[in-house]
Amino acid sequence: MTEGNFVDYVKMHVSSGNGGKGSSHLHREKYNAKGGPDGGDGGRGGHVIIRGNENLWTLLHLKFKRHIRAGHGEHGSSARSTGADGQDEYLEVPLGTVVRDTETNEILFEITEDGEEKIIAEGGKGGRGNWHFKSSTNQTPRYAQPGIPLEEKHITLELKVLADVGLVGFPNAGKSTLLSVMTSAKPKIADYEFTTLKPNLGIVKYRDFQSFVMADIPGIIEGAAEGKGLGYYFLRHIERNSILLFLVPADADDILKQYEILLDELRRYNPEMLDKERFLLVSKSDLLDEELKAELKIELDKTLPIDYMFMSSAAHQGIQELKDKLWKMLNS
């Protein structure tokens, strides 16, 4: 999937259908000029329903659907005939989609399971026909209920990427290169910051035909939790990952400090993200000779609070070792 086709944020207006009117019909036949009330009920207006679909990875198919309208319920008719219900409208969304009320920014619900359905705009109920109102003192009611009006909402759909492993790091730390080496994904790679503007997903093939999903998230900068850089547009994607794989390049001035800045941004955005399993990858380690690597290892063993390893995507060093480590973490 190309970067331009990855749509993870859509605003739209949805409206359900009006309920149909109840009928105030009075029964008339050739030999029955004054029959009783026999008006039928109105049909229910159509719902707008959001449904999870595990085969979708993006909101691209909804990008240009700004207005969604369900069908109106039909009016009731004679012989107590109930009007037809309005047609429901279904919005298929990928798993991990959050639905917000655009005006209040309140989270209405999240879709996390395949086939899960939630009504976002409920169709109006049909009005009752006049035969419901017949009584001993009012044997010929000439009135019926109108249908309940439709419901309208402005909603925002936000996709939080569902992946087993999420890559976290500063811009130009080598995340896209790692994804291209570990999977068949072809993310844009260049020697400048913010080459990646949208998350990229790839499937990592493991032994015995097993696999797991890895997500390349756009780079973090200091202050991202306050909206700097790409801010919330990428931090929300990290929430759905099982393991956070931090990337810090071997030529960084202070590897521990860079890791702590990244961790602090996640903490300020959502403290619950610190409960996830974490692993540090010292990327671009082909820039180090064995002596420098040994010195750096002694320093990191003293200061780093999590497990780490050296690897180089460009030189294909440590690829299988990293796959083994991640698979073990996912299945522990």
Rank of each mutant, 00 (worst) to 15 (best):
F170N: 03
Q317S: 09
E113S: 11
S211M: 13
G76A: 02
D264M: 13
A190Y: 13
D275H: 09
E89H: 14
D85K: 07
E290C: 10
L60Q: 10
E89F: 11
H154Q: 15
E272A: 06
A225P: 12
T104L: 00
K11E: 14
D254K: 05
I111H: 08
Y233W: 14
S15L: 11
D101L: 07
F212G: 02
I203V: 12
V248I: 07
V161I: 09
K293S: 02
A294R: 14
N32Q: 13
K276G: 02
S77D: 09
I68W: 10
Q145S: 08
S24M: 11
A173P: 03
G129T: 03
K21Q: 11
P199D: 11
L326E: 01
L256G: 01
E291L: 13
E265W: 07
S15M: 15
G46Y: 04
T104C: 12
K257D: 05
T137H: 10
L263F: 11
E265P: 09
K34N: 12
G147Y: 05
Q210H: 15
G35D: 11
D38S: 06
S313A: 14
G169E: 07
R236M: 02
E116W: 03
T137R: 12
P146M: 08
E193P: 13
K125Q: 03
K297L: 08
S176A: 09
L281Q: 06
S135V: 05
E295H: 14
F170A: 02
Q317G: 01
I119S: 04
A294W: 14
P218V: 06
Y259F: 15
G123I: 04
F194E: 13
